[in-house]
Design a protein around this nucleic acid. Structure first.
Lengths: 348, 348
DNA sequence: GGCGAGGTCTACAACGATGTAGCCTGGCCC
DNA sequence: GGGCCAGGCTACATCGTTGTAGACCTCGCC
């Protein structure tokens, strides 16, 4: 069996039509310099006439490189990851790479599988953003037979290049922004007090640091657990905080969707933002600039993270310096104040 | 040269360790039945011991199938497409397929390139959602050497299976919903009067039909052009409509992000929604359920579109009935009323 | 005792490209 | 005139798998 796809033209066909060897076609296609102009033209004419395209699958098998990199993220339906994927795809494209996206759902088993699974044969390397793995899993990244760039804050000290956000400093600055506005009872939506690792823990750490800087007591009751970082869980967390009657006058959402969920609850309860409660998020997704009120947030340097991750991965793939020590890059951040903290008087 | 990736184990290695031929290893891996239990165990033990994984690139070359399908969308940073991609990936995964996402940016040249480009060798078929192509480009889908399922409303009568939304009926029902609330001056955000094809034109058509059904005059001045379907353009379009002082009492956003952009402008201008102006969108992205006010919209059957598209494509790939006529599937829709039309009295 | 029908396994060629080695021609130098 | 080099091209093996054909064995049955 094994019929060829109708219309699939191979180098063989081109070679036959141009009256040269198959290798000469390969040489033309790959820009090998020592070919007479006349020969090159014949081959190019044959390629054009037959509509030939090199078969990348065959080329990959032979070359041992695919030109594809993997990007493992929890879910694309979360705007932060969708926007990150967008940025990674663009950055990769500029460097001649194709991106294969894998959704892990934030499920441990899938996150582990992605590291070794079949699809790794399709890719030259992996940009890896785990959510379920923790510091104890650092060894899972050991002895992989492909380069890997780690994103996020679940695992440190892994044998891999690592690109992170300024979680602590970003959250600290966001909290400082709220404190500067005179707020003192600042709740944290998504701040599970038992969480000790990951972005959540680091951002809470930044939050606590800012409180300490300003002599404001840290009250664990103000940490509102949210489970998954979705709008619905942010909304629920906010509702529980309000129900607990803690005198909250500001909210730090550990991500924008959590903050937007919180805004939703505040909206339903007709609580004035920022009049009674000011809200700030983290991630600066596009949606934040258009919500009502517009959402103050921390811009985490998403573009920078994407391009850096692709660059680091590409360096490893090309093996320029195989023994190079693993690098850790922390992206720049910026607090972006909008209506949800400044009110209408602030930026449009 | 061509060093093997460190640790890359092949069937050869497994065969040597198990003391069988390489083909027997292949047979075990592929579940060929006529193998003695003892042999199978030896092979499986060797596989486990060496950590062998089949090389999908080589398998693809030999089989002529890759198990990957392409999904070409304009941009992932638009929530509708991110959520669609999420659904397509899940549907594909359930059927044992991997999805390779390609962003065209809605740029004509990239949309054409995607049809023939190198990456088609990586995929067995393509789910194709063009934005820049029009009806005159139907022939571009002719004579492709891979199966293709078309999404969207840019091209009809193309030689391909086609999955669409209920654009006309959905917009008609949405408009009817506004009319039922007593609104008569219904503006359309994103409704370029010169646009004659695509989702925009069809939705405007449904809008016009609903007006006609109710004896409400159609006023072209109420069509607010928006260019790209992004929040910012929706906001600008809304601003222009307000500035024109047309007595607008309702807005049909041709997509949710356009409607959310419109809501943003209304929020900035402190215009009561739905008190003075009611707003409804189209797409039912997750964000719509959490905006302030929550956004009424048309649920377009995104899941159904994704699973149907994958199923149709898979049928073509497997070539069960190569001559089967091209099918056209229209997904079910539903109007989802929320606060932006019903007000606070409506659903939470 | 011979024969057909499985069952079990293997050798070989192929998928479509590229790396390596080597052939041939011509020109140049000593 | 022999040796050498560069340019231009080709043959062949190879990447890791799977399809095909067939070898060999055992069994059951006429």
């Amino acid at each position: 069996m094994n019929r060829r796809r109708s219309g699939a033209v191979t180098m063989h066909d081109v070679a036959a039509r141009a009256g040269v060897s198959i290798k000469t076609v390969s040489n033309v296609v790959n820009g090998y310099p020592y070919i007479r102009a006349e020969t090159r033209e014949k081959v190019e004419a044959a390629i054009a006439a037959l509509g030939y395209r090199v078969n990348v699958v065959a080329r990959n098998l032979r070359r041992g490189r695919t030109g594809m990199i993997g990007l493992a993220v929890p879910v694309l339906s979360l705007p932060y990851f969708a926007e990150l994927a967008d940025s990674v795809i663009r950055a990769a494209e500029e460097r001649g790479l194709t991106v294969l996206i894998e959704q892990t759902g934030g499920v441990r088993a899938r996150e582990l599988e992605v590291l070794h699974g079949q699809r790794r044969h399709f890719t030259d390397g992996l940009i890896y953003s785990p959510l379920a793995l923790g510091p104890d899993d650092a060894h899972e990244l050991d002895g992989l037979d492909h380069p890997l760039v780690l994103l996020g804050e679940r695992i440190f000290d892994a044998p891999a290049d690592h690109v992170t956000m300024s979680n602590v400093e970003g959250a600290r600055a966001a909290t400082q922004h709220l404190l500067d506005l005179g707020r003192r009872r600042i709740a944290v939506v998504g701040g599970d007090p038992h969480e000790t690792v990951g972005a959540a823990a680091l951002r809470v750490q930044g939050y606590a640091a800012a409180l300490a800087d300003n002599g404001v007591p840290f009250d664990p009751a103000l940490l509102g657990d949210a489970g998954l970082w979705r709008r619905a869980s942010g909304a629920q967390s906010m509702a529980r905080l309000l129900d607990a009657d803690l005198g909250v006058d500001a909210v730090l959402g550990l991500s924008d969707v959590l903050a937007l969920g919180a805004l939703h609850t505040l909206h339903l309860r007709r609580i004035d933002v920022p009049g009674r409660i000011a809200v700030i998020g983290f991630d600066d997704i596009e949606e934040a600039a258009f919500s009502a009120p517009t959402l103050s947030t921390v811009h985490p340097g998403r573009e920078q993270i994407a391009t850096t991750a692709v660059d680091l991965l590409l360096e490893r793939i090309e093996g320029r310096d195989p023994g190079a020590p693993f690098r850790r890059v922390v992206a720049d951040f910026a607090v972006v104040p909008r209506e949800s903290t400044l009110g209408r008087g602030g930026p449009a």
